Amino acid sequence: MTADAPHFKIRLPRTLKAKLDQASRLSGLSITAEIVYRLEDSFASIETKMLEHRFDELDTVNREIDDLQAFIDKGDADKQAIENARTQLQSLQRWHELLIDQVSHLTMEVSKQQEQSPPKRASRK
């Protein structure tokens, strides 16, 4: 933490302040470092969860694309049903591309945060 970092006051419930004091003593970090560590960790967790959600969504879209492609390739449905399936397939393929972009962006963000974040519970003792 640098001396030129912004300062601000915050009101905390006494019980939360006591928990921060105890965590600070146990970790050997200053209370400011403890708070910064916990905040950074919480933001990293959010982006990690977003990334996991996007991977799950990508798996679902991939299965739907495979199912539609198999339906189209089978070719035993009427012409209108196959045309509808092709339209759905094109929409899913566009969504797939957007998901790939989002996964790529989130992966870079999570990697960046992991490089910048302090080591877990590094102690100054």
Rank of each mutant, 00 (worst) to 15 (best):
I35E: 01
E115M: 06
S24P: 09
T32V: 05
V103G: 06
E64G: 00
A23H: 02
E97T: 08
G75F: 06
R124P: 01
Q80T: 10
V61A: 13
L92N: 08
H7M: 12
Q93S: 10
S24N: 08
A23L: 12
A23T: 03
T2F: 09
N84I: 00
L29W: 01
I82Y: 06
D66E: 13
V61T: 14
Y37W: 03
L51Y: 09
A23I: 07
R94S: 12
F55V: 02
L99G: 12
Q22N: 05
L106N: 07
L12F: 03
S24H: 08
E115N: 06
Q69D: 07
R54T: 06
V103L: 07
V103F: 02
I46Q: 03
I65H: 08
P6S: 07
R54I: 01
P119N: 06
A44N: 09
L16I: 14
D76K: 12
D41A: 08
M50D: 15
L89G: 03
R14H: 05
L106M: 08
L26M: 11
Y37M: 06
I46S: 05
T48V: 02
A77N: 11
R86D: 07
A3E: 14
R94V: 15
G75W: 05
Y37R: 15
L51C: 02
L12W: 00
K125N: 13
P119S: 08
R25N: 10
L39P: 01
K74G: 00
R11C: 04
S111D: 15
Y37T: 09
L98I: 10
S30A: 09
R25K: 14
R63I: 13
E83Q: 13
T15N: 10
S111G: 11
L68M: 04
L106V: 03
I35G: 07
G75N: 13
A81S: 15
D76A: 04
R63H: 10
I82P: 01
Q102P: 00
L20I: 15
L89E: 01
I35L: 13
F55T: 02
S24M: 10
M108H: 13
F43N: 01
K9W: 04
T107V: 01
Q102S: 12
E57L: 11
A70C: 00
L106H: 11
E52G: 01
L12G: 03
T32R: 07
L89M: 03
I35T: 14
I82L: 15
L29D: 02
F55M: 04
L29R: 15
A5P: 00
R54N: 08
D41G: 04
L16S: 10
T2C: 03
T87P: 01
A5Y: 09
A70T: 05
Q114R: 14
Q93P: 02
T60P: 00
V110T: 09
T32E: 11
A122P: 03
Q22H: 08
T32I: 04
K17L: 12
A81N: 11
A18L: 11
D21P: 07
D21R: 13
R86A: 11
L39N: 02
K49M: 09
D101R: 10
E109D: 11
P6L: 05
L26V: 07
M108L: 15
S45Y: 08
Q102G: 08
K9F: 06
K49C: 06
W95G: 05
Q88P: 02
M1F: 11
D78H: 12
R11N: 12
